[in-house]
Amino acid sequence: MQLSLRSKERLFALGLLIPTFTFVLIFAFYPILYSVYLSLHRIIIGLPALGKTFVGLSNYRSLLRDPIALKALSNTFIFVAVSTFFEILLGLAIALLIHKRFRGRGIVRASILIPWAIPTVVSSQMWRYIFNDKYGLLNLILYGSDIARYKAWLAEPFYAFSAIIVADVWKTSSFAALLILAGLQVIPDELYDAARVDGATGWQQFTRITLPLIRPALLIALLFRTMDAFRVFDLVFVMTQGGPADSTNVLQFYGYKKIFAEGLMGYGSTVSVLVFLVTFLISLLYIRTLGRQFRRSEA
């Protein structure tokens, strides 16, 4: 009797989970494996008559010798490192600011959430317009009506790359701030009171109490931001199309170009696999670090 109740429960649970499993297995996990399979073939979308030719690892060998792919790889890493660094730094600063109680805190928090909520395509167009050579707000602020000095920011490699980082940092620092804020809110006030009684300065309180206690929250914010930064696509697609001269080309954009603009389903899939492997390894690394963090904080 007990056993049949238990198995009834299992059956019910399975029934509840099956729809979710179906979606995730067919449209997320199976495609990953399918990408690996495709990457071992030569398939051209526009030429279905060619069919699929098995080519072994030759796509991967080409990838390693493809200067644009390597450029996109290094661009992606630089983008991830720089944007994540600034997002966590600004996120921490904003979190510390809005953690305090003050009048109008709700409205301030809502305003900070606006960049997060705006569609990325909209924020990309917005920043593209701000950096515009003729009508842009940046030129207006820097040079006023001295239009001879107006710069075409997005036409110069360094500025174009920086522009994309600025747009990303603007949009996502608030998300980092919210995650860090959640970490701040669980620190009991008594700790600060005790520190003050012992004569600790504000800076000491920050480095000895706040920072160590929000480390897990910082790590989680770092994890989420890193993974998300690897996906950068909308900004590049709208603002620069990877240019000028591939200076803002990134992996997700390059893969998209290869598969859907050039129709190289097989070769493009090697980029897909590469991106998956890189992000998978990084997320494993983070999760292990986090696990160690939590075990230490419980001990």
Partner: peptide, 19 residues
């Protein structure tokens, strides 16, 4: 599930399109 929410869209884009 967490893993699904993290991997970049490009890693499944081609196959999803084919399906």
């Amino acid at each position: 599930l967490l893993l699904v929410s993290m991997f970049p869209q490009i890693s499944i884009a081609g196959p999803v399109w084919r399906i």
